[in-house]
Each structure stands twice: as C-alpha cells, then as structure tokens.
Nucleic acid binder design. Sequence first.
DNA 1: ACCTGAACACCGTTCAAGT
DNA 2: ACCTGAACACCGTTCAAGT
Lengths: 223, 223
Amino acid sequence: MVRKSGGTPRREASLSRERIVDASIKLLDASGEAGLTFRALSERLATGPGAIYWHVADKIDLMTAACDAIVERTMADIVPGTDPRGAIRAVALGIFDAMAAHPWIGSALTMAPGQLPAVRILERLGQSVVALGVPEERQWATVSALLSYILGVGGQNAANMQFARAKDIHRQAFLAEVAATWSALDADAFPFTRAIAERMSTHDDREDFLTGIDLILAGITSP
Amino acid sequence: MVRKSGGTPRREASLSRERIVDASIKLLDASGEAGLTFRALSERLATGPGAIYWHVADKIDLMTAACDAIVERTMADIVPGTDPRGAIRAVALGIFDAMAAHPWIGSALTMAPGQLPAVRILERLGQSVVALGVPEERQWATVSALLSYILGVGGQNAANMQFARAKDIHRQAFLAEVAATWSALDADAFPFTRAIAERMSTHDDREDFLTGIDLILAGITSP
DNA sequence: ACCTGAACACCGTTCAAGT
DNA sequence: ACCTGAACACCGTTCAAGT
C-alpha cells in the first residue's frame, strides 16, 4: 500500500477521519444527538478531545460527515430502476427507512443545508425529475419541493424521537400522549385537531409519508 | 382588577411569563437561537437566571412559548376567505413570511412536535382540507403532508440563516457560496446539481415555496 | 408566592507542549 | 505530522436562602 505521505504504514489503532466518523455513528445510534460529545468520543477512541480536531473541523463537520456516510450507503443500496416515478419513491423511502434506523440524520440533514448529504438526495431526485419530463424552468421548484418535504418529515421524526428519549418513553407512548393532549383541546377552536386525534393511532407513518410523495408526484404530472 | 391570588396589584416591573416571552422574542430576533440564553435573558430582565424558572419549565418550553406567540399573531392576521384553496395558500404564505421575519421559529416548530404552535397551523390547514372535500380516511395524510412540507422549508430556512450568521455573511452571499460549491462537484456524479447551480440565483424562495404548496394542492384534487 | 445568585455538571473549542 | 490534556469561556439547571 503506497501513501504519498510516506512509507510507514499506519498503526491500526491510529486516528483517522474514518475511524472518528464510525465511532460517532455508533455513539449517535446508541444515545442520540446528545450522546455525541467530544469527550465521549475521545474516550471511546482512547485519545484526548484535542486530537479529534486534527481530523475534523468542528461538531457540525463531524455530524455532517456521519450523516453523509449513512446517506451514501442508502443511495448506493437503491437499484436504479427505469421508471422515474418509481425511482423517486425508492429514494424517498430509502431516506425514510434510514431515518427510522438513525433518527439523528434528520437534524443533521437540516443542520447542513447545501452540504454533501442533502446534495446526494437532491441529485437523485433531480435526475428522476428530468427523466419525468418536467420543463427546465420548473425543475428547481419541483426538486426543491420534494426535498423540503422529505427533510420536513425527517426533522419531525428526529424531534419526536428526541422528545420520547428525553422522557424515556417509546415512540408509541409518545404518540398516545400527543393524541391525549389534542383530545383535550378547546372544542370550538380546534375541531379538526380533536377529530383527527382519535384516528391518529390507526395510521402508519411510512404509508403516510409515501402518500405525501405521491401527492407531490401527482401534482407534478397534473395539468 | 381582581386576582384570585390576592388583592395586591403587581408592580409593573415584576416578572411574568408574558414579559419573559416578550424579552425572549427580542433576543431571538436580534441574535438568533444562540442569542437566547438564561443569562442574557435574566440580564435583560434585571433578575437572576433562577427567577425565570419560576415562570418557565425549561428552555424548550420558553422557545415553544415564544414561537407560539408569533404563530398565534400570524394566524390571527389571516383573513378567513371562503375558498379553501386560497385559505391553505394564505396560511402557508403567512408562516413563510413569519419565518422570514423570525427565522428561529423554524427550528422551534420542529423542536416541539405536537405542541401548540404546530397545532395552530395543523388546525387551519385541516379545516380547509375538510372544506376541500377530501374524504375522511385521507385527511390526516393530506394535512400531514402540507405541514411537513411547510416545516421542512422552515427548517431549511432557519438552518440557512444560522449558517450565514455564523459566518457573518448575508443570505445572498451564502446562496452564492452554495452555488459555487455545487458547480465544483464531480460532473459525472452530480450532473443535475451542477446544472441547477447556475440557475439557482434567478429564483425567488417565496415563489418556489408557493409552487410546492400548489403541487401538493394539485395532487390533492387530481384523480 | 416569588426572587436571588452561587454552585453544579456539563458543553465545544483552543493551545502550549510533547513525540 | 499528529497527539496530549489542561484550560477557557461558556451553557442549562438546581437549590438553599432570602423577602
């Protein structure tokens, strides 16, 4: 193995951006956004907090890199079908599932606007939108709408999980709590919210998410 | 004025949840999410950090209350037209404009899922969706899609502003920077992103936002 | 009932000093 | 070139003590 920096091979335990990012993902998966601290990270890597700053600019850089690793894998796993509509759905669902497995990427994606992770999604959506025949002048608004929707759902998901984790309850219990709060709202001011609260538990998040994508897709191809 | 807690009228300078929320909004508007600290707040209110905790549960409670004050005003300012489609657009645009004036509500809205500020928006959208004739079993998914999209745009907006503020540049300069980064991406891997980067500066955020709303609206009413 | 302000238990980040 | 770890400048939150 040839390295331009010299002939000495690295010790396996030496620090590297990749090792730091891997450890960060483990920390984030295990205990959420609050679990990633430079102290916890340096302890896990048997080093000092300062050492990490040699490989990483700051915490946002670190979270963005961790998020990008997940998004890159997710995009790679999606087989590129020929149908653009199916491709858009596949990308959206891929991100949704990745966010279910790693809720913290929801906030990481919004924290780093215009950065690589979001751009990977944008690119995939964009290629499909072009293939769908959307005229050039409407392409940006269309892709941007799809991305905003996906990131919006992701942000909500991340917030829900964080809330639930903070109160040490599960997602299901959290939703039940929200439904209870909504049912107790003023009947005159919040008739819709009260009505929907009772029906909320029946719904599947993943299905609802896809319905939203289909709504936008239908809008794209409608006159 | 009769108060059930007793006959002594309050000094005008005494602390109250309302005064704390007002001061928080001023702090948030002036210096963003990072500007709201219990120390800065207590200094502005000429008191100690601990005093604030008598009126407010924690920082999330405080940000939610501040956000709710803005959302409540915004909703009150929207004249309820008879056309449900127009009402949905008006609510969406109202929130968009409020987020332009107070970028921090973007993150406040996602931070407090299921809380009052988001529910106010949900309720308004919901009533219009019902008026639009969407069948009951599709109402939740429809409203949820609209809300996710709106919150998604808001989150992006908030992040953009935060990024720009941290680098001490304006929104325009930030977007130019993003465009430059995108133009420098690999041509084989990111053809769409590169192409769109050149056209991005021409677009108006507010118009793009409304296009997204119209896309979803078109999807709702399409077969 | 409401306020004070010191103290606690953390953060991210920096930087002289080492190898 | 890369790592160490103490130190800096903050945070949100708590709580005994006051009025």
